[in-house]
Design a protein around this nucleic acid. Structure first.
Length: 494
RNA sequence: GGCCCUAUCGACUAAUGGUUAGGUCACCACUCUUUCAAGGUGGUAGUAGGGGUUCGAAUCCCCUUAGGGUCACCA
């Protein structure tokens, strides 16, 4: 039988990074087995629905390079792929369950249930099938007339009294749970919508899903699903429950402790392939001697059985390190237009810089930052004249004699025949040695004059990329306007 | 609290009964150096604890401890 897997998010806003990993593992598994990958939207809770989130979800998934074979955006022979468009199907199967004696009608209101629950400490309440208002306590006739009178009802799963439900998880092995622990789960809500448990089982069966790969938070509800498959007489798909992604304190990854939406990471400037690489290695590893893998290789090497059982902490430091490696290995030619887009996105009018210039900027600064747009913050002087100057840096390196040298160097720069870093380095070093000086005697103030900062790429390389005219303008401005101000300020201070 | 899951350096992980317990990130030192990085070299650091089984246990079993998930007319 050919492999069919699905990713089934609910449209509550955005794609969670944990969701991305689940989507990724499903994708690896599908591709590797030449199977089909289905996107199904589980929107059976109308109150949590967020407008536009389906588009948002697909956008993030597409950014990550995940493609589907069937789904609401592309169709397929098992549609519709949005659960709210399949209500009749769930209603049919819910009622069928009652008919075959595995489900029952109940009329308790939310308030009544709430009250019953509050009488118990912790979560010890379990639905009392033979005490509350349902088809067993009311009788068939009363039950029927209530339904005909339009009284709202739900359909619950009739869980066997004392049976062992066992199943084999691909990652965790055999798991056994006694039905004593399983509640008479509501399957069809009073608004006519199914709960997750019903919709999920029905759809997985109807869509011929062979492998269910999802987060560990679903493990406790598997017995309910097994019971449903058995009641319907359906084949149970193979299951694999993935370990959770964790915060630093090892709790389930949550919004309070950092960004959990994939779009947050898109916005921060991580590369999709780097992000996918990082996420894929949280909970699984092809071999331990390498950590950079392209999508194709991840697909090829993925092994569901080798996925870890324990949760993995989402560590941004590691993500940054991986992204930095991608940044360094990507072609500057490809990166230049991306940098231009980031500049524009950050309000810097990227259009005014040539791609040739931006390419040089990338080469100059890529090994000093983690993410492409970080270049803008790290080296703002590559895109505009400095608007402030690091005073501490000035104090640390200023010497009155430097001004004379700087003026001479300025004149020198105006006429130097070849404005490239080799020549600049060589000639300036030569000039300095004639005066018994070292590079470090002037280079810091030169850096301050040109960049305003105490750090950055190699000074001569930076000057070459900025170009003669720009360098000369900055140096003149520094000597005529900025320097007097800095000296006054330092005199005041000491 | 019940049930279920889990447990290797700070983090991600490798080692599926026999290794001086390996790698990457982070950290530290040294080196390079015009700043900041990057690079190079080296280093600190781990099998939660206790019992078994075995010639031999990170690995198998049990207990303890710790952490997590879950217990909705949410998914």
């Amino acid at each position: 039988m050919s492999v069919r897997v699905r990713f089934a998010p609910s449209p509550t806003g955005f794609l969670h990074v944990g969701g991305l990993r689940t989507a990724l593992y499903n994708y690896f598994f599908a591709r590797q087995n030449n199977g089909k990958y289905v996107l199904r939207i589980e929107d059976t809770d109308r109150s949590r629905y967020v407008e536009g989130s389906v588009e948002n979800l697909i956008k993030s998934l597409t950014w990550a390079g995940i493609e589907f074979d069937e789904g609401p955006h592309i169709g397929g022979e098992f549609g519709p792929y949005i659960q709210s468009e399949r209500l009749e199907i769930y209603r049919y199967w819910a009622h069928h369950l009652v008919e075959i004696g595995c489900g029952f009608y109940a009329f308790d209101t939310s308030e009544e249930l709430e009250q019953a629950r509050s009488a118990y400490p912790h979560h010890e309440f379990k639905y009392e099938r033979y005490k509350m208002r349902n088809q067993f306590t009311l009788g068939e006739k009363e039950c029927k007339s209530l339904i005909e009178a339009g009284v709202p009802y739900v359909i619950r799963l009739k869980v066997p009294e004392n049976e062992e439900v066992r199943f084999v998880d691909i990652i965790r092995g055999e798991i056994v749970v006694n039905t004593k622990e399983v509640d008479d789960q509501i399957l069809l809500k009073s608004d006519g919508y199914p709960t997750y448990h019903l919709a999920n089982v029905v759809d997985d069966h109807l869509m011929k899903i062979t492998h269910i790969i999802r987060g560990e938070e679903w493990l406790p509800s598997v017995p309910k699903h097994i019971l449903l498959y058995k009641a319907f007489g359906w084949e149970i798909p193979r299951m694999a429950h993935l370990p959770l992604l964790l915060n630093k304190d090892k709790t389930k990854l949550s919004k309070r402790q950092g960004d959990v939406a994939v779009e947050d990471y898109i916005e921060k400037g991580y590369f999709p392939d780097a992000f996918v690489n990082f996420i894929a290695l949280l909970g699984w590893n092809p071999t331990s001697d390498r950590e950079i893998y392209a999508m194709e290789e991840l697909i090829e090497k993925f092994q569901l059985e080798k996925v870890n059982k324990s949760g993995a902490i989402f560590d941004v430091v590691k993500l940054d390190a991986i992204n930095a490696k991608y940044l360094y290995s990507k072609s500057p030619v490809d990166l230049a237009p991306q940098l231009r887009d980031w500049l524009t996105k950050r309000g810097k009018n990227g259009g005014k810089f040539s791609l040739a210039y931006l390419e040089k900027v990338v080469i100059l600064l890529r090994e000093r930052v983690k993410k492409l747009p970080d270049i803008i913050d790290f080296a703002p002087y590559m895109f505009e004249k400095p608007n402030s100057y690091d005073f501490d840096y000035f104090i640390k390196h200023w010497d009155d004699k430097v001004e004379v040298y700087l003026r001479e160097i300025l004149n020198f720069l105006k006429v130097i025949e070849d404005f490239n870093h080799h020549v600049l380095h060589e000639q300036i070093t030569c000039y300095l040695s004639e005066r018994q000086l070292k590079l470090k005697d002037i280079i810091h103030i030169l850096r301050l004059a040109i960049t305003g900062l105490s750090y950055g790429a190699g000074m001569f390389e930076t000057m070459e990329v900025l170009g003669r005219q720009e360098v000369v303008e900055r140096l003149e401005h520094f000597l005529e306007v900025v320097l007097p101000e800095l000296r006054t300020k330092s005199n005041e201070k000491f």
